[in-house]
Nucleic acid binder design. Structure first.
Length: 105
DNA sequence: GCTTTGACTGGAA
DNA sequence: GTTCCAGCCAAAG
């Protein structure tokens, strides 16, 4: 299985995220069909930078795991979409993208 | 084809 | 609640 499929699925999952919503790398990986491959999502996003709303993808707990100006830019973009921030974290409780709006864990 | 790095995660300190 | 450590996966060198 070419990693291309993996990237494609990941990108599709990210594109599925509506504006004003956010999701974690683990969520995207699971949505793509590869649970546990959170790091793979990061690698795929970095490669597909610009082709997908990478800004809507955050780390676990709504924490920005980005480096450099990207972290700053992501926060700005999310704020522009209506996402509220809780200190240095994103308010996942109100902006966490769920499939069907089901509570989990 | 193997090694290193990285936009990760979950649990313990 | 934040920081540190070890584990996992995929892309790049």
């Amino acid at each position: 299985m070419a990693s291309t499929e993996y990237v494609k699925k990941v990108l599709a999952a990210v594109r599925r995220i509506p504006r004003g919503k956010v999701a974690t790398y683990g969520d995207v990986a699971e949505a793509a069909g590869f649970p546990g491959a959170a790091r793979g999502v990061a690698a795929a996003l970095r490669k597909a930078e610009g082709t997908v709303p990478w800004q809507r993808v955050l780390g676990a707990g709504g924490r920005i795991c980005l480096r450099g100006v990207n972290a700053f830019e992501q926060r700005l973009l999310l704020e522009a979409e209506g996402v509220r921030f809780r200190g240095s974290r994103v308010d996942m409780k109100a902006h966490r993208f769920r499939s069907g709006g089901r509570n989990r864990q």
